[in-house]
Amino acid sequence: MIEILMPLFWIVLHILITVGILLVAVAYTTYAERKVMGAMQRRQGPMLVGPFGLLQPIADGIKLLSKETIFPERANKLVFFLAPMLTFTLALIAWAVIPIDQGLAMSNLNVGLLYLFAISSMGVYGVLMAGWASNSRYAFLGGLRSAAQMVSYEVSMGLVIVTVLLCVGSLNLTDIIEAPRPFWMQIMLFPMFIIFLISILAETNRAPFDLPEGESELSGGFLVEYSAFAFTLFFLGEYANMILMSAMTSILFLGGWHVPFGIEFLSFVPGFIWFALKISAVLFFFVWARASFPRYRYDQLMRLGWKVFLPLSLVWVVVVAGVLIATGTLPNMEAF
């Protein structure tokens, strides 16, 4: 019995630590978002609660949780409460495979990248279920929009992931970070990096692609009927997803825990700090895009996904595969 309970205890402890860190990170991502947007718009952002407003996220959390949970009369109760739980759970379980530092992943899965892709492709259910269960036209339209949007952008995201796979030859996230990447390969992957950055904005329903909750036309979209704890779960899920997508970007394109640009004298800084800094850089891009761009129109969003990104990434898969075979640098070529 003890030989089962001990590993179980360590796994549970590991999960609790990860979730704890993630929740703090989510709280301070919201703070950073408000501060950065404030600075971009020549405001101060939150300043009153605590020094420099540092306790603002905690005050927000208490406010959200102490509100009354409102349940629409004709809504489907089961699905209504299942949706936020699903969204939040999905945002958390993806972290099981993310390697934070050399050998520091909860599970070093052979198909870690596919696992991440599978989990992120399921995020659409929370929104769709919330939209349907609320029994409200605004919420339903928001849910439908989100479903169409996420399915569309996943296609090009999948192709972008394929180009990276071709270069590194493994689905294991640790192997992807460790794989050698000469300079020309990084140049070749750069257009895909841009496409991936834009696609993760759409995948996480963030501005300028936040049509599912576009307040000017849908008055909050799928979130319109949610309040208090259920809303908090959605909110946490959205920001945890942003952090997850940033982690995915830094693993695929920015070298994970490695020192940026291979600068020698900075290598005394531990790897997980570099990883956190890279995640923060991508998160800054999220906020930057939100502060800079107006919301896309729905047909423009669909055109961008299907008529621009999909053909571009498809052609790029062929180009990358061709270059790798022509130069004989395709990984694992000798195995077969």
């Binding site: 198909v111 599978a118 399921m122 996943e154 689905l171």
Partner: peptide
């Protein structure tokens, strides 16, 4: 691999 593809294609 089959497990993940099942989730991606059928669930996703």
């Amino acid at each position: 691999f089959v497990a993940m593809i099942l989730v991606i294609v059928y669930v996703g």
